[in-house]
Simulated assay, not measured.
Amino acid sequence: MSDSNISAFPLHRRRKLVEGIARILESKNGEDANAFWRNTAKQILVQLSESGIAPRLAEQEVGTLLHAVLSDIATRSALTLA
Results as ranks from 00 to 15, higher is better:
Met1Lys: 00
Met1Gly: 03
Asp3Val: 00
Ser4Pro: 00
Asn5Glu: 11
Ser7His: 15
Ala8Thr: 09
Phe9Tyr: 15
Pro10Ala: 12
Leu11Ser: 03
Arg13His: 15
Arg15Gln: 14
Arg15Ser: 08
Arg15Glu: 11
Val18Asp: 00
Glu19Gln: 15
Gly20Ser: 12
Gly20Asp: 08
Ile21Thr: 05
Ala22Glu: 08
Ile24Tyr: 09
Ile24Glu: 13
Glu26Thr: 03
Lys28Thr: 09
Lys28Asp: 07
Lys28Glu: 12
Asn29Met: 06
Gly30Leu: 04
Asp32Pro: 02
Asp32Arg: 11
Asn34Phe: 04
Ala35Gln: 10
Trp37Gly: 03
Arg38Ser: 11
Thr40Arg: 08
Thr40His: 04
Thr40Phe: 04
Ala41His: 01
Ala41Tyr: 05
Lys42Gly: 05
Lys42Gln: 15
Leu45Arg: 06
Val46Tyr: 15
Ser49Phe: 09
Glu50Thr: 06
Glu50Val: 07
Glu50Tyr: 05
Glu50Ile: 02
Gly52Leu: 01
Ile53His: 01
Ala54Asn: 05
Ala54Arg: 00
Pro55Cys: 04
Glu59Gly: 05
Gln60Thr: 06
His67Pro: 00
Ala68Asn: 05
Ala68Glu: 01
Ala68Met: 08
Leu70Lys: 12
Ser71Cys: 11
Ser71His: 10
Asp72Ile: 01
Ile73Pro: 02
Ala74Met: 07
Thr75Ile: 12
Thr75His: 12
Ser77Lys: 11
Ser77Thr: 15
Ala78Tyr: 13
Ala78Glu: 13
Leu81Asp: 10
Leu81Tyr: 15
